[in-house]
Nucleic acid binder design. Structure first.
Lengths: 343, 343
DNA sequence: TTCTCTACTGTGAACGCTCACAGAAGCATT
DNA sequence: AATGCTTCTGTGAGCGTTCACAGTAGAGAA
């Protein structure tokens, strides 16, 4: 605990100081620092003692200069704006990734590429090798940054299957389709037959997959597909509200709604309430995400939990593997139905 | 736009390549890179052209190695856990800081020090000089990390006035007391006389100041102070709900509640609704933050807007000034009353 | 002319680390 | 004894910058 830093606040100890203190050479200290192979137990011990005594911390800049690695990764958001604030998933993802990386002693650089200008600057920064890899959070397709990074050979892991890109980019995603299937099956099991849906944006993988799951289950159950029961939203609360109104208008006999996000489901609840429909008695409502919004809603939302903690862990694992030279990989994780009051 | 990177994906251009291309020396290129003083217009031009042609990007590690600066700053959270998820302010603060820093081409490193272990590692990392300064987000007092960083002479700017520390630490805060005064004055102006409050945690500056504002205005208005009208929460939704129940119990004639955060106000609304009180007819409710929760609530919350965009900008400005050698400074920014349906 | 001053430019030496290499032991095999 | 191995250790070189310093050239003053 005691740093022998007596007096001068100047000049932190270097590997040289440690070497002198331990009575060995720089090389040996360096070897201890990097895994301790080919180091005698005695030297090992002496070096560790010297490190403790001097309070030595490796200078990452010097290391990076020679290794060419930066030992840091970027967390890149390419969303326009709103999603960042509205979407609670970002938080838990960001937190999860930060901590998973911290376990490897790798700092996370937060990068937000909203405007064209920011995009250019950040692409430059990344391709210049200032980070070893990138965790990409961008739901919409046709993301030019992702494409550029992929071409530049930057290790990359996306959150959710990127639509535009080829198959050579890693991603980690929850099993959206299966989650949707679970929810719709649940609604059917409650005896509902006029099951509507408010989809996510259909240029996002989540939006597409959840809708696909919805249709599959209805088809399997022999429930006829009705266009009037399908409206689309953009994951925002307001769009959920508008969607529900359209739904009530087009199909007044709707008795259940599968909503592709909890936030939209909040909006749906508002609209249903205003229309005098009781939830879940008249209309059962199922959300998606299991975000804080789900328990904040009244009644509390039955929803699909996405395993965000696992997702962030996997993203980091796959990224580090890729930085280590492994090939890209796709990881799909199962979801879970969480039953609450709304269905 | 065209990077003449034909063929070899190897070895990015160095300052040397640029110098050769421009027909000048490393020194001149370096001077152009660092402000262009003592460089002839001709050389300036030639170097810029060479930079464009080669696609050169400065190697920050090499630069940092010699300058001793890292040209990056840390964004440090020392909250236990929950706040990070629950508090929408974090998001906008984080985003604001990232972008304000991006304007200076400075990356932001996200650091989360939840456990004792993480705290130690991060303190070490920071004091080793891997970041030039720290933006500190920690509401609770007695934060050991802040104290250690201050002692180590690390440039530091806190968000909100740190309770435990001396006056020698910079901070940027909204004028909590004045905001509370505005809100309570507003409630009184509606004719309410039994104005209760659900405070924030009283070991946070926000909690203390908002309560102080509440008491001041009541005193000024000659409304007698009643202990039964004051309950405390922890900024969480649940604590707001519990607080409102206690309030209704202790002072059934309450006709207005000033709640120290929107999230708690949501809980208050739930409890009032359950108790059969109408908002705002029976009980007017005022929140604090103007977070997304304010418009998500029904009825929409009258609240106090904190100028988060300005707060983040100021935090960055003060931090950079401090890194540049200036003395610590405190900045207090005005709040704004936002009238909606709940009061 | 000669000197001084200013504006500009080039050059070696760091910065703190890792890497490749050379060597020194110790031990077993020829 | 000579040779191979394996394990361990020290030493120079160099990563790409910036910085201090030593120059050079040109303008103006003595």
């Amino acid at each position: 605990m005691t740093m022998s830093n007596t007096g001068g606040r100047r000049r932190p100890p270097t590997i040289h100081d440690v070497a002198r203190e331990a009575g060995v050479s720089r090389g040996t200290v360096s070897r201890v620092l990097n895994g301790g192979h080919y180091v005698s137990p005695a030297a090992q011990e002496a070096v560790n003692a010297a490190i403790r005594k001097t309070g030595y911390v490796v200078n990452r800049h010097a290391r990076s200069l020679i290794t060419g690695r930066s030992d840091s990764v970027g967390f890149l958001l390419t969303e326009p704006q709103e999603r960042f604030f509205e979407d609670p998933n970002f938080n838990v993802l960001l937190r999860g990734c930060t901590q998973a990386l911290a376990a490897h002693d790798i700092p996370l650089l937060l990068m937000i590429a909203g405007t064209e200008d920011e995009r250019r600057r950040i692409t430059r920064y990344i391709t210049a090798g200032h980070v070893d890899g990138v965790l990409l959070v961008s739901s919409h397709s046709g993301d030019p940054v992702a494409e550029q990074l992929r071409e530049a050979g930057v290790p990359l892991v996306a959150c959710g299957k990127p639509i535009g890109l080829g198959s050579k980019v890693s991603y980690v995603a929850a099993d959206d389709r299966d989650g949707a299937r679970d929810m719709v099956r649940h609604l059917l099991s409650l005896g509902r037959r006029r099951v509507g849906t408010v989809t996510g944006p259909l240029d996002t993988p989540g939006g597409v997959e959840r809708l696909a799951g919805y249709r599959e289950v209805l088809a399997e159950a022999g429930v006829p597909y009705d266009d009037n029961l399908v409206v689309s939203g953009d994951y925002s609360r307001a769009s959920g509200e508008a969607g529900a109104e359209r739904l009530l208008d087009q199909a007044p006999d709707v008795d259940a709604v599968f909503v592709a996000s909890d936030l939209m489901a909040q909006g749906v609840l508002t609209a249903l309430h205003r229309a005098g429909r009781r939830v879940p008695e008249d209309v059962a409502v199922g959300g998606f995400d299991d975000s804080p919004a789900a328990v904040a809603a009244s009644p509390e939302l039955t929803t699909i939990r996405q395993p965000w903690d696992r997702i962030s862990n996997e993203m980091v694992r796959v990224l580090l593997a890729q930085i280590g030279g492994e090939d890209p990989a796709a990881v799909i994780l199962p979801t879970e139905l969480v039953r609450r009051a709304s269905a």
